[in-house]
Amino acid sequence: MTAATTDVAEPSQDTRKAGRFVYVAGVVLLCAWVLVPLYFLLINTLSSPEAVNAYPKSFIPEFDLGSLTFFAGFDGILTALKNSILVAAMTMVMSILIGAPAGYALSRFEFRGKELFRLLILLTRAFPLPLLALPLAVMFIRTGIDDTVFGLALVHTTLAIPFAVLITFSLFSGIPIELEEAAWTLGCNRVTAFQKVILPLVLPGITASAIFAFVISWNEVFAAAVLTIENRTLTAFLLQNLDTSPLHLKFAGGFILVVPALIFIFAVRKYLFAMWGIANR
């Protein structure tokens, strides 16, 4: 009997071990997927031009600040950074303010043309920006919101809304309406029930769509380059010029473009993780 039990136990332990190995390998691979390019970006940013062009590459940065110093003295880079943050923040606020109620309506109410509405929302992403930029720019110039942070944020909001609507739609759908109804019976009206019961539950999802909005706005170049001149965003200001720049400046410029977005995502990660119930641990 004992022999039989060990016979059974051993393969299951093996499977568990193998499963664990696959799990760990998967985690390591995914982390490397994200971290290795960032690490290379970092070392090349902190390397002298000679080291950047040399091969094989060193894995230890030599802390040469030449490339970063160049950008520190680059005219207008701080203004561009400020504009980028402003546009991204406004895009976040506006896309949530518009997108979340739309998502709520889609999940809670039945109305005519609901399917069509969902499709139309996605359609805003169906047209490439270079196609839309010309008529948009003409209209912006005529209405006077050309070359303003607000005007650009409007365009970026349009790009971000489909994500905001669809993410919040699935969030609200995941919360049973009974919760809301219970709150109504306990003295809440629609607004307070939403505020006290639903909002805390959907906050992580809202954060996720806010991050989407932020990243969409942060990365967008074409509209920013056409619709702003004095108030350029960092991406429009730098990205177009980087592809023709020497390699070491490409790396440093790329680093400068990536870091603020990373800092932002790091700052709001608490709200994002709450989605999987591990908040504030």
Binding site: L86, A89, M90, M92, V93, D147, T148, V149, F150, A153, E230, N231
Partner: peptide, 11 residues
């Protein structure tokens, strides 16, 4: 964010 935005929209 929104207050900065409002103050900056008139540049």
């Amino acid at each position: 964010a929104s207050s900065i935005a409002i103050s900056c929209s008139a540049v």
